[in-house]
Write a protein that binds this DNA or RNA. Structure first.
Length: 157
DNA sequence: GCCAACGTTGGC
DNA sequence: GCCAACGTTGGC
């Protein structure tokens, strides 16, 4: 899957924990605390610097895509996983043998409006997009280029 | 706040 | 290696 060409992603974040406005303020952040193997493998194996990200607000009212971010640094060990004072501590991870990784993400743009999940579900050309599938909980998802472009257009037109 | 869907853990 | 119990996610 990692072909060297640009890939596209969707990152979920709960806005009251870390919203796109937080990312805009910070400019760049560590995408910390991913503790799901599928999501980790995407970060570790397929994510490249410059990949573009649909920034998704989950557990929001309504949930949906609110902007664009970019991969600023490729996967490296998540040091919080061996920090026993962190919420993200995992006793099975160590400095010698890290189990989890994170990437750095930078702000690109905030949409003029949030594109609600319901609107994505309704869109005839987004039926195959992962995020609209029932029961899809993965917090980091690959996105097809054509889907990325459609959602980007919805957010900026 | 509910709860269905899903992932992980751990006893056997 | 099965699978029940448990914890988490996240839309509603």
């Amino acid at each position: 899957m990692s072909t060297g060409k640009q890939n596209y992603w969707l990152f979920k974040s709960e806005p009251y924990i870390y919203s796109i406005d937080d990312l805009k303020r910070d400019g760049k952040t560590h995408w910390e605390g991913v503790r799901n193997y599928q999501a980790r493998n995407f970060m570790r194996d397929d994510m490249r610097k410059g990949d573009l990200i649909l920034y998704y607000h989950s557990n929001a009212d309504p949930p949906g895509v609110i902007g664009i971010a970019r991969v600023a640094k490729e996967a490296y060990p998540d040091h919080l996983s061996w920090d026993n004072k962190s919420n993200y501590f995992d006793p099975k991870s160590s400095k010698e043998n890290p189990r989890w990784v994170m990437v750095d993400v930078e702000f690109v743009e905030k949409f003029d409006r949030l594109i609600p999940l319901a609107e994505l579900k309704r869109h005839p050309d987004l039926k195959e997009m992962m995020v609209v599938k029932p029961g899809m909980r993965l917090s980091i998802q690959p996105v097809e280029e054509k889907h990325f472009k459609i959602v980007h257009d919805l957010g900026t037109s």
